[in-house]
Design a protein around this nucleic acid. Sequence first.
DNA 1: CAGTGGTCTAGACCACGAT
DNA 2: TCGTGGTCTAGACCACTGA
Lengths: 249, 249
Amino acid sequence: MESPVPPEPPIYRRIAESLRQAILAGDLRDGDRLPGENALMAEYGVARATARQALGVLINEGLAVPRRGSGVYVRRFRPIRRHGPRRLSREQWGRGRAIWDSDTTGRPYTVDELTVARESASAEVARVLGCEEVWVRRRRYSVDGRPVQLAASHFPAELVADTPITRPDTGPGGVYARLRELGHGPAHFTEEVRARMPSPREAARLGLPAGNPVILVCRSAYTADGRTVELNEMIMDAASYVLQYDFDA
Amino acid sequence: MESPVPPEPPIYRRIAESLRQAILAGDLRDGDRLPGENALMAEYGVARATARQALGVLINEGLAVPRRGSGVYVRRFRPIRRHGPRRLSREQWGRGRAIWDSDTTGRPYTVDELTVARESASAEVARVLGCEEVWVRRRRYSVDGRPVQLAASHFPAELVADTPITRPDTGPGGVYARLRELGHGPAHFTEEVRARMPSPREAARLGLPAGNPVILVCRSAYTADGRTVELNEMIMDAASYVLQYDFDA
DNA sequence: CAGTGGTCTAGACCACGAT
DNA sequence: TCGTGGTCTAGACCACTGA
């Protein structure tokens, strides 16, 4: 009987692992420069493609981010805390603290892209909103000058026609205030949360490096009598967000 | 004045884009085999590394998954719907049902790994639970024979000592029923949701291919008088889950 | 056994960033 | 200007899959 020998991982994995340990142990900190391709070639005696492959592992893990002409650097994670139902927030009952510190709460955001258009609803949107024609408000949010979220709000066309919701400036209180004035104020919300890798288009619009997933939040707003009045699809940089949901048993 | 010419993307990107379109347009369906490295070399007249790079793009996007010795195939996405508030309602755990019954919406799940141990709390866990010693229940959940979630529930040691919570079988209703019998039934919950790429260890335990993010849910359970009685850290295959949260305005 | 993807070498030219 | 990462070629050997 011979005990099964665990096969040695390939060289590029071992190089990646040693760099990963340096990052997780804190030897390399946020924003520090990793050894470059040339340095790894010299240190480990490997070809350039192999050194490159090792760095690619960390980049695809989201631990490192490459900068053309400069080097590969340790990625930082300073999330924005996005609250779901705020009125149920933990501060009202618990003394526990968040696991992940986020001093970034309350930082100012900007809307640096905004389009409002009447469109034909996709099959899914049509099914949820129960209509074929919709008004769509698309915008991109940035924090500290960096884009962090794409959002597209859909409204039934006949519901919001000739209201400020169809214009860039919705007025004080935003779209929910306008919906309330129309007698269709939201009373209930459902949010569906998913995560995946971004499409190239999404990655470009959000300025995401490789190895950076996106969080998708699809929020439906319902009136008290059960009508769906808004469908908001959000695409968030996963490295920039922590979503918080509070609820009772 | 010359108008700025958008630079052509590199060959491997164009190859990847054409494959992506084939997938998104439905020409290639779930589980279909993509053209392999040799096919792409012939079709586009590129070197093997370039064909490989093109496939790597789709793999890292989570659109395709490679199978050694066989080919590269279109990835499928059949998520489990995990309900936030509903699954934790008193009606669910109050009458002898396990939480996961409402999770899989008809698909059977299994717990194929389970360990229960008394441990020293990490600094973060100690801060949230307010104690140094904890009991930790770690398990792995599988659906359709595939692992989909890793979970680690932490309980204050002095609270659950000598209860079924410290044993593999917690009895009918699970840990929340036991906590309620102890007079520490959860009344409020907070869930923090993040997403990132998995570590190699997490990817191995969940059997994740490249390009597959994980969703992290950190749930804190509080009693009515504000004590934190559980901290549950979950790591989910992002391709297997949709999280749903319902709340009122 | 033939074909596949996984790993690796040894070159090359390029665009870009810092200096 | 020089070093960086980005792209690409033309080979090689390996382990694994499937017929």
